[in-house]
Each structure stands twice: as C-alpha cells, then as structure tokens.
Design a protein around this nucleic acid. Sequence first.
DNA 1: ACGTATATTTACGTGAACGTCAACGTCAAG
DNA 2: CTTGACGTTGACGTTCACGTAAATATACGT
Lengths: 154, 154
Amino acid sequence: MGAGVTSGASDPGRLIGDVARQLGISTRTLRYYEERGLIEAQPRATGNRRYRDADVDRVVRIRELQSMMGFNLDEIAAILAAEDDLARLRAEWQSGQPTGRRDEIVREALAINRRLQDQVHDKLDRLQKFLDELEGNARRYRRVAREIAAERDQ
Amino acid sequence: MGAGVTSGASDPGRLIGDVARQLGISTRTLRYYEERGLIEAQPRATGNRRYRDADVDRVVRIRELQSMMGFNLDEIAAILAAEDDLARLRAEWQSGQPTGRRDEIVREALAINRRLQDQVHDKLDRLQKFLDELEGNARRYRRVAREIAAERDQ
DNA sequence: ACGTATATTTACGTGAACGTCAACGTCAAG
DNA sequence: CTTGACGTTGACGTTCACGTAAATATACGT
C-alpha cells in the first residue's frame, strides 16, 4: 500500500489537537474559525471534530489570507464563500443537474478573483517600493560604517 | 517666495486635526502613537501639538509598516528607534563630536535593515506564489464560464 | 475682546481574535 | 473499572489599537 493512509473505509480525518499542533495554532483558534463559519469540521458521528486534508488546507489558506494580505475573518469568509459557491457549481455541473444562477456565481467568483489579484498587485508594488527604500537606507548605513572605519584607521 | 512656506521664522508645524485629515486617520491615533513613544510632537510652547513635515512622514512610515508588513506598534517602535539612533549618530558625526558605541549603533541599524529586507523578500515571494494561485483559479473560472456559454448556445 | 472651531488631558468603552477556565463526555490502555 | 489523555460546550478574560465622551484650555478670524 501507499504511505500513510491505511486502506479501507473513507478517511475519518484527524483530531483537533493533532491538526493544531501541525499548524502551530491553538485548538481554540480552530473552534473559533468554525464558530465564525469559516470551516465546517466533518459532521462528526462521535461528537469529536474530524479534520481531513481539505479542511487543513482550508485553514492554511485562512492563515495566509490573514498574515499575507491582512484580511480580517469577515473578508476571508466572503472570499472562501465565493470559492465554495463555485466549487458547488462545478460539482452540480458534473452530475448534470441544471443549476440556476450559474452565470451569477461564476461572475461573482471571477469578480472576487479580480479584486484579489488587484490587491495583491498593489501590495507587491508597494512592497517593492518599500524594499527599494530599505536598500537605499542600507547604502547610507554602509557609508557611515566606512566613515567610521576610515577615522579609526586615520 | 516659494510656494507654501511663508518666509520668516522656523516652521512651527501644523495642528493635529489638519494632519489627521490629510492622512485620513484620527487625532486619537496620532496622540496614541505619541503615547506609545512612536512619535514626539514638537516641544510645543503653546500646549498644542505641532507637526512638521518630518513628523508627518514618520506617521506615514508607521502606517506603511503596519499595513504592508503587518507589524505591531512595538515592532515598529524598535525599527524606528534603531533608525533614530543612527540619525543621531550622523548628526553627532557632522558636529565632529566623538561618539561612543558608534560601531554598535551602525551594526544594529544594519542588522535591523537586513532583517527587514529578508522579511520583505519573504513576503514578496509568498505574495507571488499566492498571485500565481489566483491566476490558476481564474483560468479554471473562465473555463467554467465557457462551458456555461457553450451549453447556452447548444 | 469675543465667538467658535480646535485643541488638551483623563478615563472609560469597543471590536477583533483569540486565551483560559470550568464542568463534563469519551475512549484506549492497564 | 479506573486512569489519563484527549475531546466537548459555554462563558468570561485579555490584548491591541484605537473610539468616545467630559471637562477644560487654546487658536484664530472679525
């Protein structure tokens, strides 16, 4: 067999503490995300939350949007919601069901994607400018360092 | 005369509300930054804070470090402090005074600058990867849109 | 000098994103 | 069958970065 997944029934997923340790976050955070509707741990038969790989990936995504883009959880929820809508649409599509509001959903997903790309481009530009500034400062710093060295060796 | 600065005594600087409006932030925020030691409004003779261009620039810098890099005010304070040390060193330098701890100060400023540059590079990389992902998604979205259009025109 | 638009300090309030604690359930190991 | 490590749901606490309000002083045009 392959590595990891012991063959058999469908993967029930991992427990919350396990996932939290792997991601370096608290269990409280994971429950909080669920509270806020950002994730939905699998309909747990046992009473215990189960996280599958897709769920874990989703949390990673949330953390990225938080730390990299500075979005708050509401904004992140909106982004994920649009993507979810589209994923659902694709699923329905493949099962051949006629789907209402298809255009609307796709348009919405594309619109959000475009807005996101714009914001990322913006951030990239500003970061690049900031980096240029930093390099300029570094040059000035090194000049000061040279002046000090020159005086010392006078 | 030039534009803006009415010739005469040294510019006393602008009032807090004026600056706040220009920067699109609240006066509370400006006072809070002072409370936290991030800025020092000019030793106001009158009792009212006065902001000169350098002060305003500094606030802009703070806002950049906040929104672009996601630093908190403590981290920003540390960064600005190191830069201030170095600026002071340069000032002392030009007035020919012997300065103790010069190497230390310069080394510290360079170290902070390097750390900052590393973090910016890191952020740039991760943002670029994120952008690539987004573009990938967009391609998938457009494909769905084409499928819908094809079905409509069937 | 006067009005009023802004400023000052002091201090308590707020929203976001969790932290922490209590009381309780559950499950594999010994 | 207990023990202990994990989970569960409330519910209240905490930190950060400000918001807001009250009482008072200052700035500036006429």
